[in-house]
Simulated scan of single mutants.
Amino acid sequence: MHSPDRIDCLILRELQQDARLTNQELADRVGLSPSPCLRRVRQLEQAGIIEGYRAVVSPRAVDLPITAFVRLRLASHEGATVDAVEERLRAIPHIVEAHLLAGDWDYLVRIVTSSFDAYERLLREHLRAIPSLASIDTTFAFGVTKPVSALPLDAR
């Protein structure tokens, strides 16, 4: 496994802020020439440290203003049951994040929808149809006080 050094951390910090930087701009910001910079970026990609590149889309701008955080508890924790639940969660497009938890709840999922009615339909048609769910608890977000942000990488 590749362990990021100080320069790698600088590269990662810059790319987390703006993944559209040209290689030349990135190289200038981290104090490398373009060839070694590109080589390091490719190594970070191959090592799985950089998992991909995405555009950050405003949910409101695409008519998905409702965010629900939903906690799920399973009735059974058998391997096949857990696999089936996770497969169903991944198949629901409005679930944009799903986390396996320790503690009272088994999963925390983030759902975006166009309306409360759309959330209710999703709940009835998709979530409640997942086998072996013992309970579902929903909390709606009124706003975002800190959006998803860059990982806090220290330059080593």
Rank of each mutant, 00 (worst) to 15 (best):
V62Q: 13
I7N: 08
F116R: 09
S115Q: 01
A129G: 10
T22M: 00
T139D: 13
V148L: 13
Y53V: 05
R42S: 04
I92A: 11
I136K: 01
C37M: 13
S135F: 05
D104V: 01
S3M: 08
L15M: 09
A68K: 10
L108P: 13
T145C: 12
H99C: 11
D63A: 10
D154G: 09
E120K: 11
D18Y: 06
V148S: 12
P131G: 05
M1P: 01
L72D: 05
G79K: 14
D18L: 09
E25K: 13
S114E: 10
D28R: 11
L123D: 04
P4F: 00
V144E: 10
R29Q: 09
V56D: 06
K146Y: 10
G103H: 01
T81Y: 01
C37K: 14
I50L: 04
R54S: 10
K146M: 11
A19E: 04
P93Q: 00
R128D: 03
R60P: 13
D5P: 12
F142E: 14
L122E: 02
S114T: 03
D8E: 10
A102C: 15
S35I: 08
G103C: 01
E125K: 02
A47Y: 02
I136H: 00
D106P: 04
I92S: 09
P147L: 15
W105A: 14
L100G: 09
S114P: 08
P34S: 07
V56T: 07
T81M: 02
V112A: 10
D5S: 14
I7F: 15
I136E: 03
A150H: 07
D137P: 05
G52T: 11
D154S: 07
R121M: 12
V41A: 01
A80Y: 06
T139S: 12
E25D: 13
H126V: 11
R54P: 03
P152G: 07
L10W: 15
A55C: 01
I111T: 04
R54T: 13
Q46Y: 01
E86M: 12
A129W: 02
A75G: 06
Q24W: 00
I111V: 05
R42V: 04
I136N: 00
D28T: 10
E14F: 10
V96M: 05
R71S: 13
T81K: 02
I50Q: 07
E25W: 09
G79Q: 14
L133T: 06
I95N: 09
A80D: 10
I95W: 03
D28V: 08
L151F: 00
E125P: 04
L15F: 08
L108Q: 15
P93S: 02
S114G: 06
R29V: 05
E97P: 08
L15P: 04
A102M: 15
S132H: 02
S149Y: 02
S35W: 15
R39S: 15
R128K: 12
I49T: 09
A55T: 03
V85F: 10
